[in-house]
Write a protein that binds this DNA or RNA. Structure first.
Lengths: 111, 111
DNA sequence: CCGTTAATTAACACTTGCGCGAAATAAAGA
DNA sequence: TCTTTATTTCGCGCAAGTGTTAATTAACGG
């Protein structure tokens, strides 16, 4: 259903990754707010948002002259699902306490 | 530590994603075995493998004239870790039974 | 040694991605 | 309705990515 390479391609740019993480943190935001701290022009941001949207990572809501963007939880879940599908491989091969806990201190909840 | 955009960029190509998944499934394989079903030339495969290796997704073991490649579990775990860091967002926003279980029937182990 | 096999690097063509400034759209407001 | 504001699309260069074939490097085996 989802085109995984396209999803990864959308995340392969640091600007886009930052945009997505900002939307995750702050919730729905208009294009203007996303352009502000970005360091590149508004047209560039607009195109990055389009790529994220085409990959299904964000959604757009139109209201008057503003376009409000939100991160799409389902897309994140799908990436998580991909790693989970290979979990037996990477989890079995690691020293879990040393490696996974170093990545994320909240890991306990999952064991 | 890890450059997440670079990791995603390495996965953004369907050939590379297939190579990685094959290594995860089959374990360590020489370059020749990876070229076989790929549909593109050996040099092209060789360069894809280089990109995967530079991104830390696979490792190389040299033995005589063969180069054996393996998937790197830690890299997979790091991607998983990234989704986990945003888990409160996407998990909280979803109807878990409908959406997550549809993605992966093994999900129960995690609840 | 010499030829074969495994794999990579080099050279070249072509496509795609990303930035910018200018122009186009479209809704609001005076 | 004319102007302002928000945002996107267009047109253009330039850097990067991907595929091909040819050439190179390295290890084996007779």
């Amino acid at each position: 259903m989802t085109d995984l390479p396209a999803t990864f391609a959308a995340l392969a740019d640091s600007t886009r990754l930052s945009l997505l993480e900002k939307l995750i943190r702050d919730g729905e935001l208009p294009a203007g707010a996303l352009s502000e701290g970005a360091g590149i022009s508004a047209p560039a941001i607009s195109r990055h948002l389009k790529i994220l949207r085409q990959a299904g990572l964000i959604t757009q809501r139109v209201a008057g002259t503003h376009r409000y963007y939100s991160a799409n939880p389902q897309a994140l879940a799908e990436i998580h699902g991909w790693t989970r599908n290979h979990r037996a491989f990477w989890e079995g091969s690691l020293d879990r306490l040393d490696t996974l806990l170093a990545l994320d201190p909240e890991e306990e909840e999952d064991r």
